[in-house]
Nucleic acid binder design. Structure first.
Lengths: 353, 353
DNA sequence: TGATAAAATGTAATCGATTACATTCTTGCT
DNA sequence: AGCAAGAATGTAATCGATTACATTTTATCA
């Protein structure tokens, strides 16, 4: 905001002078309050246009004692990621629809967002916060909660005892369906799993689903087949290379999410393996690009954009002092494409999507 | 920020009274300015704690002459797009590095950001703005400029006469190289072009490059081969369908950008055409996913993330009253993969990347 | 010790919009 | 024409923190 930069900024006073009215009248026009004659409105409007007047929200907030920033914030690991940018789109969209702006903060590259360090997004610049980030620790969340600052969690649960609303997805059954598809429809038995980042909520439940499916099909769980992809391309690539080096016997890989699945496929292809002919790979999330990938990814669909919108909706409830849902879970759905290999055995269940 | 919640709010005045000092001293303690004795600091701190004082940022913003928000804003069409989210990543990254937060506004879904309607991002919530959006018209830009509000344009030029810094890419030569590759190395002659949105700067120069290349190779320009993809998947798909319906003789398509190229390829594949065997398709931008696409895309590389960082850098110069570059052009570079089909004819120039 | 510089603190104006209250102008009606 | 009633507009206090400037206190050193 340029203010002391040569000329000073245009105020209601300037507009009033230009229009030949009082500041009160200008304010009335600005706020569309009653009892201003059409002629005056026009004159004031003209002055506003001529001078390029912009309302100072700080002054407005101060004098009217409503004191909202008109912003909400989101904290997430990165932006440039098919899954997260879809989430961001939903959040931004709904925020804008409600005349709020969105402040984005990516934790990547940030040394640490641990307890001591204050968040760059807080009551000073936002009316509430959506947090999708494991990096934000429980102590920080507790502090926000104690200050009664509106917060909604995405893809994670609140610390013990704090009733911060969470928006989550159903991981376990989705994964179980996916793995059972690999077993029953595609004929795989040696199925590897790439876990997400340590302590990750979604990863935990996907692992549960994975184990349940294997157990239900009488396939023993082999710890050698359980690696880490960290929902991250680099790490997924490393994991693939480790497995290849060990020369493990693997039919299929559940990569944890689509990002890791795509990276895994590329790593396998670079090592001369064909997917799904030599080895199948499936993901989770149904990223927008997954259907365009080579081969098109079999995955679990998650209504990511809607989840973003829902989180904002919850946040607005919180901001407006309305009732909120402690937990909003979203269902997931198997999407069968080609990377699982079921079409190779002429399986009638295969359908492009 | 909860304020009028029953009891009235605690002000610096209350703290001052409680601590037995003046408001100026409280303010000094709050802002860690020089020359407050440790004893006084302690006393004020105690009063702050006892009263549960919370600083009112509105009042602070109003009275403080520095009056910076600590935010910069970006206006763009959408977020959930491989190219734009990469740009956003670069912008956010550099902003955070400089202790700024990023406010994002997507114009999609917005009825119109024409002259009358004030931008949701302005001097009230940001210290400067990066604009990547054709929807923001010249009049709005002129207003911002007149108010001396820091603005940097991305991928577009300022209106006549306004020296707003622009960060751009080299389109014409990049496109010419791309098209000449299609002609000379891949053996195509009937090459179609899908333009970007109407009036788009990049599209204009890519079209120039396209025409130059054809002319240089003695290929007549056929207006039947010039359609519109609008840098958009839906529109690209439609254009392909139109062309297919007309039964035009086409060797290759330059889709305008990678988003349109990928959509075009999918549309062609759905119509039973093989890419690049039956028809070649090339794009522009080298989106992160382009190399993973099926087939891997021949395209023109653009350092998108760095462009984002550069735009922020220019904006900071503007904010700090330093010298800026009127124009920062970025060079582009041909990336040959498989969608152009040159490897099919055993061309030694083909190399994976 | 006294003079003086430096540190600490206080006073009061200020930022820009809102709004209670006061004043002026219209309008309709007898 | 005269007079309410209500519409339109104006005046000035107010929100809470900052800061230029003034004043008091403390420290330093010849």
């Amino acid at each position: 905001m340029i203010k002391n930069n040569g000329r000073s900024r245009v105020t209601v006073g300037d507009v009033a002078k230009q229009a030949g009215v009082s500041t009160a009248t200008v304010s009335r026009v600005l706020n569309k309050t009653n009892n201003v004659s059409p002629k005056t409105v026009a004159r004031v409007q003209k002055a506003i246009d001529e001078l390029g007047y912009v309302l100072d929200t700080a002054a407005q907030a101060l004098s009217s004692s409503s004191n909202r920033t008109g912003n909400i914030g989101i904290i997430m690991p990165v932006i440039n990621n098919s899954f997260l940018s879809t989430l961001l789109e939903g959040v931004n969209q709904y925020a804008n629809t409600c005349s709020y702006n969105l402040l984005t903060f990516a934790t990547i590259g940030q040394a640490s967002i641990q307890d001591g360090v204050p968040l760059p997004l807080n009551e000073n610049n936002t009316d509430g916060l959506i947090i999708f980030a494991d990096k934000i620790d429980d102590k920080t969340l507790t502090h926000l909660y104690q200050r009664q600052f509106p917060v909604v969690l995405l893809y994670r649960l609140p610390p013990q005892g704090l009733d911060i609303p969470s928006v989550l997805i159903e991981n376990k059954n989705g994964t179980r369906t996916l793995i059972e598809h690999l077993i029953k429809n595609c004929g795989h038995r040696r199925i590897a799993f790439m876990a997400g980042p340590a302590g990750n909520y979604d990863s935990y439940w996907r692992e549960q689903g994975y184990c349940e499916a294997l157990t239900a099909c009488d396939i023993p769980i082999d710890s050698q087949l359980m690696g880490v992809g960290a929902f991250h391309d680099w790490r997924a690539k490393e994991q693939i290379e480790e497995w290849l080096e060990k020369g493990l016997d693997i039919d299929a890989i559940f990569a944890g999410d689509d990002t890791a699945a795509m990276a895994a496929i590329i790593a396998l292809q670079q090592a001369g393996k064909r997917v799904p002919e030599d080895i199948a790979v499936v993901g989770f999330n149904n990223d927008i690009i997954s259907k365009y990938f080579n081969p098109p990814l079999t995955t679990v669909h998650v209504p990511t954009e809607e989840i973003g919108r829902t989180a904002v909706k919850q946040l607005f409830h919180l901001i407006n002092g309305e009732q909120t849902e402690a937990l909003t879970p979203f269902n997931t759905e198997l999407v069968v494409r080609q990377s699982c290999g079921c079409h190779l055995v002429n399986n009638p269940r295969w359908h492009p999507n």
